[in-house]
Design a binder for these strands. Structure first.
Lengths: 113, 113
DNA sequence: CTACTATACCTAAGATAATTATGTATATTT
DNA sequence: AAATATACATAATTATCTTAGGTATAGTAG
């Protein structure tokens, strides 16, 4: 009973930013696994969606990268910048507003408006 | 303090279907005004988004149309089909799941996971 | 009586963002 | 030896929305 992935689309950056805000630093592959885990396998964040999103947020100055060599393979750790933290708080607010908005819409529906 | 319109994108059809499920029949212009009203002007559903969505749902058999002449102008009333009702219930479930999913994500965040 | 606003439909060009399908390469498990 | 997991990445396509425009009638404001 997976959640319609369409709904997550608008919240992708919000999820990533808040994860990084919380965890400090993570690398791409780790993020995909973590999101799968905390969503009980309901939100499969594909790499084709993730990597371009990470690159864009880096370009926008929300994230910064440090590369580390692990097992002879380079890993790109993303951490959140000051600007990114502001953005993550903002996006969290927006998400909460959206949720409350949709809930009141559904309540109106049940009230028979 | 308007809600980020990006978040509504994935819920456009859900909103339209549930409105029509509730109200019986509505026409396009009426839907834009109603959505603006019940969202306290926070979600401006543009016509460029609405009409293509209505046409697609009609093609998909979720909606059906009856044209009425009001003040010498044709109005296209959309009503929901049996198939559309099933879809609206499904989409409502998906939305509630998404909301609960995001809330548990935010709780995990506050718990410091 | 003219201009603006509201009503009511619509589409097309462009932007954005996701999916799907690949591609590369190493390490581990079967 | 083959398959899976790890770890990065991009390109083509598709979906969906914004922006901007178009048509037309009716009512209101100056």
């Amino acid at each position: 009973m997976a959640v319609n992935p369409q709904l997550f689309k608008g919240s992708l950056n919000t999820i990533i930013l808040n994860l990084l805000h919380e965890k400090g630093k993570m690398y791409g592959y780790e993020i995909t696994k973590k999101v799968l885990e905390i969503s009980n396998s309901q939100f499969q964040l594909t790499e084709g969606a993730l990597y371009p999103a990470l690159h864009k947020m880096e370009t926008d100055g929300l994230l910064e990268v440090s590369v580390k060599l692990v097992d002879n393979r380079p890993r790109k750790y993303y951490s959140i910048t000051k600007k990114g933290k502001k953005e993550s708080v903002l996006k969290l607010k927006e998400l909460l507003q959206f949720i409350s908005q949709m809930q009141s819409f559904l309540q109106l529906k049940q009230a028979g408006l």
